[in-house]
Design a protein around this nucleic acid. Structure first.
Lengths: 217, 217
DNA sequence: GTCAAATCTTTACAGTGTTAGGATTATGCG
DNA sequence: CGCATAATCCTAACACTGTAAAGATTTGAC
């Protein structure tokens, strides 16, 4: 049973230091921002000396990498749990994505920021999780777009929610109206683009969308 | 006349240290990335002792802020110089924006990253320059959209190029095709959305999905 | 020429990530 | 059980960082 952490432990060994470090790191992250994520600050919160962390992580960056992997996994979970409304799947996925970013602003910045080299180099685990998120969103488009348009449409959607999420996190959007409504309208605008923009290079005129779930290339 | 910088100067006084520091800082930035932008490293390149910088900048963050202001000004200039092709203004503005990001990747990350508190707080100068860039892009939309749609359309466009630029800088887009073409197709897709999305038809407003609070599942 | 202001210097301090080596506890084998 | 050994945590120390304080050198005004 993992020790409750943060309380003064009685045993010399902690018992679950690795997870305790990650938990404390996440607290520091959301409380004070990615640039204050210091190894000594983290260890201090856990009540342990700084070098102890090196028995569980090879470097400070590795702790940040651990957080980034957590974040990537949670993002994929959020997207997978989004209600797959067939008529407005783009809207629901987009809103789920934005909701995650707004619920974990500092974590999202860490995931896509430059502050931690280990994170920027995209570990294999992160790459896999990111691909999973991307595939989930793309699957939502698959029912309504010809396969030839999927790569561009997926990239379009990803870039939009990525940029919109970061603008929100950075408080760049100062409009005083209802933020939820603004987000919904931007995503709706994107949806009409996807719906009306299909006539590019698919010569067929009334193409039934290919329903069978062949994973995209 | 500014001293050539980087060569061992003979006079005790440098003469144009402030600009020399900014120039060296920009070199460090693009060579090694924002997280390696150290005050001592910068001073070393100029051939001057570290505390000298404090006569020209109140802190290390202030140097980064100076770079961010430079970047904001250059971005606005790039957008203003974009050929105002009336039929595809969105494409040209979007491409100009992306071109700037790709030409100054580290600078763009510094401008919108979290590594430097002074930068994240958006100085008045940066706010003004950013607004100018935004207005330039919005002006490109003005000729083709009703005024009521402008705020959302502008935000949509900004979020898209912001996200797309950051994805490019982060090397998240690994598709092996022609990158220029991919960018063009994404922007074109966005353009069709703007053109066809003016009559807002959001009849379906489903139940808002529960925001995933996701604190330590 | 002289004095003051501006500029650059060395020195020093508190903080960081990290390494080395010693203390303490848990574990597996006889 | 008893004991060797491995795992874990500790303190001490190093090189580095941003920044403050105070001394040296140059510029410019009177």
């Amino acid at each position: 049973m993992p020790r409750p952490a943060k309380k003064p432990r009685k045993s010399y060994h902690h018992g679950d230091l690795r997870n305790a470090l990650l938990t404390a790191a996440r607290e520091v992250l959301e409380e004070r921002g990615p640039s204050f994520l210091g190894l000594r600050e983290i260890s201090r919160r856990v009540g342990v000396s700084a070098p102890s962390a090196y028995h569980h992580f090879p470097s400070r960056d590795a702790i940040a990498l651990g957080l980034a992997e957590q974040g990537a996994a949670e993002l994929a979970t959020c997207l997978a749990a989004a209600p797959a409304n067939p008529s407005g799947s783009l809207l629901t996925y987009g809103e789920a994505y934005i909701a995650f970013v707004r619920a974990n602003p500092a974590l999202y910045r860490l995931m896509f920021g430059e502050g931690f080299p280990a994170v920027s180099q995209h570990s294999a685990a992160i790459r896999a999780l990111r691909e999973r998120s991307y595939d989930i969103m793309k699957a939502g488009l698959e029912q309504r777009l010809p396969a030839s348009e999927l790569p561009i449409a997926g990239l379009f959607l990803w870039a939009l929610v990525h940029g919109l999420g970061l603008l929100l996190v950075d408080r760049q959007i100062v409009r005083d109206g209802d933020l939820e409504d603004i987000i919904r309208r931007v995503l709706t605008l994107a949806g009409t683009g996807l719906l009306h923009g299909r006539g590019r290079d698919d010569g067929q005129s009334g193409p039934p969308p290919p329903p069978p779930g062949t994973r995209s290339a």
